[in-house]
């Protein structure tokens, strides 16, 4: 099996001296759906941002064998789709179409090609009607789907979801889980969450973070252990 993501002894300290990642190591195999569990503030978002080279960490991260560095990050990111926890951070253009086309335009894809790809992605997610709408005219769940579209549009091999189900109502939540499950067989997926239920439902493998340290790496069955959950503030 090839390794899609390899994280070796990664440290990250915010400018205000918060040590958010304290020597984190793990690897994700190609095609796996991998869960990053941890309570609020355990470092999940920070870790995901390091993997994409957005935050300048100490240590080593490899994506399909290539070391993440400032030199190759632009190319590496093309193969990663990222879905933020809060859609309002992710969607910054005046219309849904403009937002989804931002990525492909940055990578120099031609307008007519972009148009075809976007049609396809919107169709798959069942949100064709949103195309010309402004994001602030959409509900939270609808915005979330648009975020997924912005991540899928470049057809990346790796998809990253930061707390995908937080703040969603039960129906949108089910829809979103269905979308992730439908992508499972085609992509390497990284999901951060503080909900053991989500991880048990879709993850092949997990790590558990607590205060910036990996306290568990392995199969999700550990999440049935009530004592473990309480100890790591997951229940």
């Amino acid at each position: 099996m090839t390794e899609a993501i390899e994280v070796k002894n990664v440290w990250y300290k915010y400018p205000n001296d918060t040590l958010a990642l304290d020597g984190v190591s793990f690897f994700v195999n190609k095609g796996e759906t991998f869960g990053i569990l941890g309570p609020n503030g355990s470092g999940k978002t920070t870790l995901l941002l390091c993997i994409c080279g957005v935050l300048k960490f100490q240590g080593e991260i490899r994506i399909f064998g290539k070391k993440v560095s400032q030199k190759n990050i632009y190319e590496l990111r093309r193969n990663i789709g990222f879905v933020f926890q809060n859609p309002d951070d992710q969607l910054f253009m005046p219309t849904v179409y403009e937002d989804i086309s931002f990525g492909p335009r940055q990578y120099g894809i031609k307008e007519n090609e972009i148009k075809a790809i976007i049609e396809d992605v919107l169709n798959k997610l069942g949100i064709e009607d949103f195309k010309n709408k402004s994001s602030h005219h959409l509900s939270f769940g609808e915005k979330k789907k648009v975020c997924i579209a912005t991540a899928l549009v470049l057809n990346p091999d790796i998809l990253i979801f930061d707390e995908p189900t937080s703040e969603l109502d039960p129906a949108s939540r089910r829809e979103l889980m269905q979308i992730i499950i439908s992508l499972k067989s085609k992509k390497t997926i990284l999901i951060s969450t503080h909900e053991p239920k989500i991880a048990k439902e879709i993850c092949d493998k997990i790590i558990v973070l607590n205060k910036g340290k990996v306290v568990y790496e392995g199969l999700p069955h550990i999440l049935n252990d009530q004592e473990f959950l309480t100890k790591n503030r997951l229940a």
Partner: peptide, 20 residues
């Protein structure tokens, strides 16, 4: 704080200092 996160979102979608 938000402007920082929006900037990250731009980076993650291929922004390299220039809007294309």
């Amino acid at each position: 704080d938000r402007s920082e996160r929006v900037y990250w979102s731009m980076l993650l979608r291929g922004f390299d200092g220039k809007i294309k």
